[in-house]
Measured scan of single mutants.
Amino acid sequence: ARCQGVVCAMKEAFGFIERGDVVKEIFFHYSEFKGDLETLQPGDDVEFTIKDRNGKEVATDVRLLPQGTVI
């Protein structure tokens, strides 16, 4: 199932997405972002798939959504 959220933090090689369905942040590695990383910034709406890696939830297949998609 695809989830939606808003990019809330960006570091050197990874970032965090504030999920739209639950009050929780989820980790994503930049290699999982399908698009131009140069244009990705905090506040952007994205959709993603949640996978379990070593007992921790991570966002994979992260894709940009049109602004205003995530309420």
Rank of each mutant, 00 (worst) to 15 (best):
I17A: 02
R63K: 09
T39P: 04
D44N: 11
D36A: 10
D36V: 08
S31L: 05
A1H: 14
A9H: 07
R53K: 13
T39H: 13
F33S: 02
P42L: 13
L40N: 02
R63Q: 11
Q41K: 12
G68E: 15
L65N: 11
F14I: 05
M10F: 03
F48H: 00
L37A: 08
I17G: 00
V7K: 02
V22L: 13
F16P: 00
R63V: 12
G5H: 02
G35W: 03
Q4N: 03
R63H: 11
I50F: 03
I71V: 15
H29S: 11
A1I: 15
G20K: 11
G5C: 03
I71L: 14
T39A: 12
G68N: 04
R2F: 08
P42N: 09
V70E: 15
K56P: 04
R63T: 14
V7L: 04
G55R: 05
T60G: 06
V46G: 01
Q4T: 15
K11S: 06
K24S: 07
L64S: 07
R2W: 05
T49Q: 08
I71R: 15
E38T: 14
D44K: 13
V62Y: 01
M10T: 15
C3L: 15
K24W: 02
D52T: 13
I50K: 07
V62A: 00
N54E: 08
S31A: 10
E38Q: 11
A13S: 13
L40W: 00
V62W: 03
E38M: 09
F14P: 01
L64Y: 15
D45M: 10
K56H: 10
A1W: 06
K11M: 10
A59R: 00
L65K: 08
V62T: 01
R19E: 04
K24R: 15
K11I: 02
A1P: 02
A1G: 12
C8Y: 08
K24V: 04
E25H: 13
A9N: 06
R53G: 10
F48L: 02
F48M: 06
D21E: 06
N54R: 14
L37F: 09
G15R: 00
G20L: 09
V62Q: 00
D44R: 12
R2C: 06
K11P: 14
K51S: 11
T49A: 10
M10H: 02
K24L: 04
V58W: 09
V70K: 13
P42D: 07
R19W: 08
T69Q: 15
D44S: 08
M10R: 15
E38K: 15
N54P: 04
L37W: 14
D52I: 10
G43N: 05
V23S: 14
A59T: 02
D52N: 15
G15N: 01
V23F: 11
K56F: 07
G5N: 02
E38H: 14
E12T: 12
V70I: 10
H29T: 10
Q41P: 01
M10S: 03
A13V: 08
H29P: 11
V7C: 01
A1K: 15
F33W: 03
I26S: 01
G43E: 00
F28L: 02
R53C: 11
E25D: 11
R19N: 07
V6A: 14
G20T: 10
G43L: 04
S31G: 10
R2E: 04
F16A: 08
F28Q: 00
G15D: 03
V6F: 06
V58D: 06
F16V: 09
G55D: 09
L65M: 10
E38Y: 08
G5V: 01
D61P: 00
F28H: 00
P42H: 05
I17C: 00
T39C: 12
V46E: 01
V6T: 15
K24E: 12
V22M: 14
C8L: 13
M10D: 01
Q4F: 09
K56M: 11
G20A: 14
R2H: 15
T69L: 05
G43T: 02
T49P: 00
V62K: 01
D21A: 07
R53L: 13
Q41E: 15
C3R: 14
L37P: 10
D45S: 11
T69I: 09
D21C: 05
V23Q: 06
S31E: 08
V70C: 14
D44F: 08
L64P: 14
D52M: 14
A9D: 06
F16Y: 13
F14Y: 14
F28I: 00
K56Y: 06
R19I: 09
F48D: 01
G15S: 01
K34M: 09
G68I: 05
E25N: 10
L64F: 07
M10Q: 05
E57A: 10
E25R: 09
K34H: 10
F16E: 01
Q41M: 08
V7M: 01
I50E: 04
M10K: 06
E38I: 10
